[in-house]
Design a protein around this nucleic acid. Structure first.
Length: 517
RNA sequence: AGGGGCGUAGCUCAGUGGUAGAGCAGCGGCCUUUUAAGCCGAAGGUCGUGGGUUCGAUCCCCACCGCCCCUACCA
């Protein structure tokens, strides 16, 4: 075992031996503390010096040394724990010869416990006057730079433990993330939802269109797919009488990696029987407003250089969004009627493309022949999606690109489906669930027939069988937790909200590194 | 996959066609209320890797590796 910086590593190993020579264990098994650093920092934040002197309080507290100032026969240090800090003051007269020898052998990064009394220094900082030091663990490697912290993004992702020690902001993100999940659970639990766990390994990938990861079960001798969505299993549960059900867990998609995509990402999916997509839209407005308020303190949330107002959502049908964001330079905007007409979406896209190519704007490139609905979806993504910065509910998605959603009764070319867009990102996707087994089978077979890398290769017949047992009218939705966390923590990349984002494995700098000792 | 950018001490960063510097961390010394402690001293580098151009390359060129951003892919 040997890591850079070698010299400091060896230096610190020697110090650990010297600490043992003082009669202390290298890796002691316990330390009984009376208060956490956070406890002390909050409980005595306002307590005046005179009070501390008059009512001597003995405290026992532990933490990691993050600053160290040794001055001959006394010294100061800061201990950090749970993101909070407290100063300690160590005086040779008080801790004794052996205690002070130990103090001199400590390094930045070491864990110690102290016993002592609280006081305030000349500058009025709350400080523990240490009477006894307990060595707890040695840091054999140095901490990142104390003032600038750790800024190298690669190191921050690869060695997140250092990022969490050194960068307060990063720590806050990963404290906020579970709070968001907690609030989501609270919101759903309060509405009678039941949380479940469905399989992560599927015999057939389904519930979304994406390339799956494949693995193999030896005993059964079958290939299994890491799930790309829990959707079909959760809907089986609504058939089984779980009228309100949700799952928060990982999905895996074998696709590109970007600031908005990680191969594994966390999704909330929930299903509510006897509701439709309109009910979910209303519920979402309430959910997002409440969430923003609880997490950030306001319904208006700063993200990058914009203020996102979760207090009011714009609602647009997909066709309306195309009309609204049609660039005036491309000629007269199409009407919703034209977009609904047979052959209309293709003609309009071609009109848009003619302008986009001449203007150097992104144009809608299609591979192969597309249906009206596919043209509509493609055109929307090309020219409108990134314009949806303020929270927007986009609804009525073409049936051709929504194989699991129920059609609109008065216009079967579109479905009762919506997505929520914020900051140009897709955050949520919900719809009235298609519960007609014959129509569902027809759509599944159409997908399989169409082929393509992301299309299912096989129809999930058990799911059709479940629908044949009768699924009540149900509305369901998925919310991307990672992207939601990005919004509420002002994080520009999904890697900033995932503790250990997927990176290419680190090449070992020497053959020994990276192997267990 | 394509385009752009970056890679210098453990960390944060300067820098130059003539083999490299600062701050922090580390080491030795002084220092009993400091707090980005201070002062004195010494040390630390295959300038991502491999080729090429050149009398000479960390710098210019090419390839590769890694990371970041944009585009593509991702209903």
């Amino acid at each position: 075992m040997q890591f850079e910086p070698r010299e400091q590593f060896e230096q610190r190993q020697k110090k650990l031996e010297q600490i043992q020579a003082l009669g202390m264990r290298a890796y002691p098994h316990e330390f009984r503390w009376s208060d956490t650093i956070a406890d002390l920092a909050t409980k005595f934040a306002e307590t005046p010096s005179a009070d501390l002197e008059a009512n001597q309080r003995e405290v026992r507290v532990a933490g990691r040394i993050v600053s160290l100032r040794l001055m001959g026969k006394a010294g100061f240090a800061h201990l950090q724990g749970s993101g909070k800090r407290i100063q300690i003051y160590v005086k040779k007269d008080v801790v004794g010869e052996r205690g002070f020898e130990l103090f001199k052998l400590l390094d930045l990064g070491d864990s110690i416990g102290v016993r002592g009394h609280l006081f305030r220094t000349k500058t009025n900082e709350l400080t523990v006057r240490v009477e006894e030091i307990f060595f707890l663990a040695k840091a054999l490697l140095p901490l990142p730079e104390k003032w600038h912290g750790l800024t190298d993004v690669e190191l921050r992702y690869r060695q997140r433990y250092l990022d969490l020690i050194a960068n307060e902001k990063s720590r806050e993100v990963f404290v906020t993330r579970p709070r968001i999940i907690q609030e989501l659970r609270r919101f759903l639990d309060a509405r009678g939802y039941i949380e479940v766990e469905t399989p992560m390994m599927h015999p057939l990938p389904g519930g979304a269109a994406a390339r799956p990861f494949v693995t193999h079960h030896n005993t059964l001798d079958i290939d299994l797919y890491l799930r790309i969505a829990p959707e079909l299993y959760l809907k089986r549960l609504t058939v089984g009488g779980f009228d309100r059900v949700y799952e928060i867990n990982r999905n895996f998609r074998n696709e590109g990696i970007s600031t908005q995509h990680n191969p594994e990402f966390t999704m909330l999916e929930f299903y509510e029987a006897y509701s439709n997509y309109r009910d979910l839209m209303d519920m979402n407005e309430q959910l997002f407003a409440e969430l923003a308020k609880k997490i950030t303190g306001s319904t208006v949330v700063r993200y990058g250089d914009v203020d996102l107002d979760f207090g009011k959502f714009e609602r647009l049908s997909m066709r309306e969004a195309i009309v609204k964001y049609w660039p005036p330079e491309a000629g007269a905007a199409p009407t919703v009627g034209e977009l609904s007409a047979s052959g209309g979406p293709r003609a309009i896209t071609e009109r848009y493309n003619a302008w986009a190519k001449s203007a150097g704007a992104p144009y809608a490139a299609s591979k192969g022949t597309l249906s009206d609905g596919e043209w509509t979806g493609l055109l929307f993504e090309t020219m409108a999606e990134d314009k949806l910065v303020q929270p927007t509910i986009l609804y009525e998605f073409p049936t051709d690109i929504s194989p699991l959603s129920k059609q609109k009764p008065d216009d079967p070319s579109v479905t009762e489906r919506f997505e929520i867009y914020v900051a140009g990102m897709e955050i949520a996707n919900g719809f009235s669930e298609l519960n007609d087994p014959i129509e569902q089978e027809r759509r599944f077979r159409a997908q399989v027939a169409q082929g393509g890398e992301e299309a299912p290769k096989q129809v999930d017949l058990d799911y059709i069988r479940a629908l044949c047992h009768g699924m009540p009218p149900t509305a369901g939705e998925g919310i991307g937790i990672d992207r939601l966390t990005m919004l509420f923590t002002d994080s520009p990349s999904i890697r900033d909200v995932i503790l250990f984002p997927q990176l290419r494995p680190e090449a070992p700098s020497n053959p020994e590194q990276g192997t267990k000792p």
